[in-house]
Write a protein that binds this DNA or RNA. Structure first.
Ligand code: MN
Ligand code: MN
Ligand code: MN
Ligand code: MN
Lengths: 139, 139
DNA sequence: CATCATCCGTAGCCATTGCTACATTTGTTT
DNA sequence: AAACAAATGTAGCAATGGCTACGGATGATG
């Protein structure tokens, strides 16, 4: 009479793993956007962007530098490595699809922007494909 | 020439706040399910359910007890307070809607289960309404 | 070139969520 | 009742992401 309870450990493990990538994805995406929009990305730009202190940004930038996603030297603007730019491009595309999808579903822009900022990180490739299919069918 | 960069701090603040509720929502939901499915909910049941060590569960149960969502005394099964049961009910309903929605969108069950486990926590009331509307229209 | 505001780094705090190792309690089996 | 196995608790570590306070670096202004 074992295993009466469904094994739900897989979804949770997967969610925890996605959780761990969330910050990296948001940061490289932000760096790419800030560089596009104002030419460079400073630590304080990121702090304002995320609404956190510059200290939080500074530490995370250091870690993403160690992970070879960002290029940073003291008092210099932050840039993207090739790997960082690749990740940023993927993250931006996925984020845009989720945002467009929510709007196509009938969610107002403000709420779609809020919800997509969280949802984007937990959308797998199958779900992303389904969202793209929906967007195409609506067009 | 200020404010050239869009204020994106609101979505991120909101996402961080939702982040903080995620564990509580998952735990009360799990406790409710485990009690329904096998009559009681032990620390080890939760550990297996979430695929984490019993130590992690034990500490989180203690915190949710302090937050008056769970009832727990040493070596006893975990139960829900009224507040916990209310939260669990809401979380289960929302989770079920997100899961059904993904399936209706064309995502296979396994992936819908994985993705809904993360997505559920970042779906606001407007998006949830839109998902319900979609489900109704498909029926 | 001196001053000053801004930017950024560092020190050190807290909370959360993972873990292993070990101790204790509980309940079952001799 | 003793012994044992299983469940739970406790101690203590690490990584992550928040924060304030403070100090050094940088660049603009005078
Ligand atoms: Mn994003
Ligand atoms: Mn995001
Ligand atoms: Mn759930
Ligand atoms: Mn969940």
């Amino acid at each position: 009479m074992k295993d009466k309870v469904k094994a739900r450990s897989v979804p949770f493990s997967q969610t925890r793993s996605r959780h761990a990538s969330e910050t990296a994805e948001d940061y490289v995406e932000a760096v790419m956007e800030l560089i596009e929009e104002k030419g460079e990305c400073r630590v304080l730009d990121l702090a304002r962007y995320f609404n956190v202190s510059h200290v939080t940004v500074s530490r995370i930038v250091k870690r993403l530098h160690d992970e070879k996603l960002l290029i940073s030297s003291p008092y210099k603007p932050v840039r993207l490595t090739d790997a960082g730019a690749k990740l940023a491009k993927r993250a931006k595309e996925r984020h845009a699809i989720v945002l467009d999808f929510l709007i196509a579903l009938g969610v107002d822009k403000a709420n779609a922007e809020i919800d997509s900022e969280g949802i984007e990180h937990y959308v797998g490739s199958k779900t992303l494909t389904a969202m793209k299919r929906f967007l195409k069918s609506q067009k």
